[in-house]
Design a protein around this nucleic acid. Structure first.
Ligand code: MN
Ligand code: MN
Ligand code: ZN
Ligand code: ZN
Lengths: 140, 140
DNA sequence: AAAATATATGCAACTTAGTTGCATTTCTGG
DNA sequence: CCAGAAATGCAACTAAGTTGCATATATTTT
């Protein structure tokens, strides 16, 4: 179990040509165990006893971002939120829904909108991000 | 001219039941004269000689937001950016495009994507925001 | 038009999220 | 196991925004 997800994350890092360090493995595991984007603070909390400096966490997320293992989610919160970049295409990630009542954010992986078409040509649209807001099932 | 836009902004404020104060009028005028969302800092700079405390600018934007005269644009920058809320529907504003090369942001008022449909019912989608990125005409 | 009241403003201090420089530690390929 | 490359921790710093409170301005009432 533990060994398993350990070797899985090690392989992800190896494939991305990143050093396999404790904090990278630990953060990848945290992100694999959740279904929504997390902030630095939330990640630190979920790392529990394993304490890493917040600078290290930010730099780790940065390195995972750069190789594309992780994405920044497009949600209207003060802090950046990060998630694994699995099943996102280069041009579009799934939309994120934030409930205006309880504030919780959900990944709506089942939805995808058609890509916007450039208005006048001249604009080359490479990526599109969609944010939704309204009421979640619990609050509706 | 000056009197004209002065009375225009005064009317907007009056209709919204907000006190007509110097800073509110000045900020509305700044936002009317631009075609892209501005941060607190950019607004302050454009106010030029008229100096207002940044707290006042933030509180002013907050009051204009609350009555719906202004919107927050959803763009991936550290600071919040604000724009007049004209020609936005309740459920959807125009998309904002940010160039990955020069960093400039443009309002693509001609585009509108179909509203996302809720995946399982339970989610009530009330508002949708779209962010685009790629190359602007100048950089493509 | 003055007084009363409601609301807005400025200032100082504070918070939150993230960044930078640099000395030390940990990884990896050989 | 070693050398060099890369990652980490700590302290100090920055950027963006917020809070409390005394003062000033706008509106309403008289
Ligand atoms: Mn997601
Ligand atoms: Mn706009
Ligand atoms: Zn909810
Ligand atoms: Zn450009």
């Amino acid at each position: 179990m533990k060994l398993n997800s350990d070797s899985q994350t090690r392989n992800m890092l190896k494939a991305a040509k990143l050093y396999c360090t404790e904090v990278r493995i630990a953060i990848l595991k945290v992100l694999m165990k959740t279904d929504k984007p997390l902030s630095q603070e939330q990640i630190a909390r979920r790392l529990g006893k394993k304490h890493f400096d917040k600078v290290t966490i930010y730099r780790t997320l940065e390195s995972l971002l750069k190789v594309g293992l992780v994405h920044k989610a497009f949600i209207e919160k003060r802090a950046c939120h990060y998630e694994l970049a699995h099943n996102c295409t280069a041009s579009q990630c799934h939309p994120h829904f934030t409930c205006t009542s309880c504030g919780k954010t959900h990944c709506l992986t089942e939805i995808s909108l058609p890509m916007a078409k450039s208005p006048h040509k001249g604009f080359v649209i490479q990526r599109q991000q969609v944010r939704l807001e309204g009421l979640c099932p619990a609050c509706a």
